[in-house]
Write a protein that binds this DNA or RNA. Sequence first.
DNA 1: ATAGGGTTAG
Length: 722
Amino acid sequence: MASLPPVVVGNTSKLNPEVKKLPSPSVPFDKKNYSTKESDRAFASLSLEFREAFSLIGGDRKIESSSYVPLLQECIDTNSVSGVESIHGHIVKTGYCQELFLMTFLVNTYAKCGMMGSARSVFKEMLDVGGYPTNYTLGIVLNACSSLCDIELGKQIHGYIIKYDLEYDASIGNALCSLYSKCRSLDMAINAFQRIEEKNVISWTAVISACGENGNSAMGLNVFVQMLAEGVQPNEVTLTSVLSICCTLQALDVGTQVHSLSIKIGCGSDLAVTNSIMYLYLKNGCISEAKKLFDGITTISLVTWNAMIAGHAEMTSLAEDGLSAYFYGIEALKIFQRLNRSGLRPDLYTFSSVLTVCSSLVALEQGEQVHAQTLKTGFLSDVVVGTALVNMYNKCGSINRASKAFVEMSTRTLISWTSMITAFAQHGLSQQALQLFEDMRFVGVRPNKITFVGVLSACSQAGMIDQALAYYDMMINEYKINPVMDHYACLVDMFVRSGQIYEAFDFIKKTDLVPNEFIWSILIAGCRSQGQLELGFYAAEQLLELKPKDSETYFLLLNMYLSAGRWKDVSRVRKMMRDEKVDKITDWSWISIRNKVYTFKPGSKKNQASEVAKTLEDLHDRARHLGYQVETNMAIIDEEKEEATALPAHHSEKLAVAFGLLNTSNEAQIRVIKSISMCRDCHNFIKVVSILTSRTIIIRDSKKLHKFFNGHCSCGDFGGLV
DNA sequence: ATAGGGTTAG
């Protein structure tokens, strides 16, 4: 970069008309690469519409250089490498390769089509022949680096900018700011922003987005406030960035104010702004507000559809109970259908969200269809779509296909690796999980705290206490990751599983974090299953002080007190449940067969004399012969029955499984979703049923996935079963 | 022609 020519900044046509034209290049381009013959061949491979547009320009006819711009833009839109080369050849032939603006746009086009080498050589040739880059030119080149995340070239150009003392220029500073933001360097982005002498609304917007994109949303909001304080009027782009930040922060209150502001400054009908507000409402559970906005949009864009789908997907995890979560998922699939019929084509955002919806619905058939669609449209090569596919297969109980999808990915991010490690762990395949973790480290991907949750739970399931503690140590000392509650939960769970209740308790006492209700629940469930009641009662008192919000936690306690005959505690817990308004428990299960959803409540009357009930009774009889003993959990009963001591009706998943067995072919997997956690009795029963029927039975409850096969469950039989 | 809305792991 040492011998680069000087630079003129500003609107060059006004400042210095001469520099607008590049001097005639001595060696303009590598002509053998862009010979007419070559360009004709490339021309032949263009799409029909493209060829027609191109022929309008005419062969050797003298045309406006600006006529190339829409064609180059189309090359960007269709990612047509042959198109750019063809047009480049044409430009060389007509002599427009002296036009600074056109050549700059050509650099941009090459870069956006992924041909950084060509982009670089055109840019270099421009400089070599004495062309003067302007602030605009440099902005475009920086933007090209940004779209390719080519931080190295970006830094070289930054060096050039520093050399000619151009960092103060807003056009350049804005472009640098977004480049560094895209390349995940927030400090550098802020630095670039601060060096701008006269910051404009674009500069402010760029730095606000940079904060949002790099995990510092709170700072983004502060910068926005500062911007308003300095009297800079935001525009619609600023508002979308700020709204996106409100979305991440779940800051509905701020978002609502920004909504008002957008109406006040006349951006209320901007599509991007509307989409952002709609998504914000969806993500915060304000479905009707979101729907109102959606219905008011005259031209629905793909982003609108995607926001609706993603918003509903989000609702499946925010919903208060499993049943409404399920219906949000169904609604998301319906919106996806409407999108498909609307004539717009889904993109990578659509597919990622829809695959997530299939995951939460355990909808394998729909997931397979979406898989086929991603393959056909080419979006499967996107790393996020690929990762979503891995998760879909995992959550539908198909670890083999999850693993296949992972292996077939051409690039993998930290999230891809973590997903696959977690998938193995969730399927009880601890060795594979740990091997993959080592592979990930070997290829130089740095694990984060979520990766370690997967690693620790893999160790926990396999009872690998020493390894778990070693990985825990590695996390803290080698990777400098502070443990969070999930890590403690894995380790407590591990001690409990291996029967070391008091080690688990010691570990809880040793930690710096205050144990939450989840940690105490694991310990209490362990105490119950191992008959360590005194410790259980102690832990229960600690737990009750936290006034748990999860009704299942109370049912765990109720079961413990009931089986110990501690009636005073039973009524105490029941009173607390009424006080905390968590006394409603909705045990629902549902199963989807041939695109129809069947819902089951525990022991519903209508099922008592039905074929389902008969099947279930028959299974119970045969299960008893294999040593299964009914273990009554008296607390979770039909909500209509008050009597806790009454013999419970069948829990809903037993009915759903029986129904599934009756209505599917003999080899088919049974996939059931349950709104609350499985109890120990049902868990034992389904294990035996998997032997009796030689079926794979998958039950996804509110806490985890259970895949039953040949008498075993992938969850490894523990994990706080009520 | 430099700033934007929607996506994946616990």
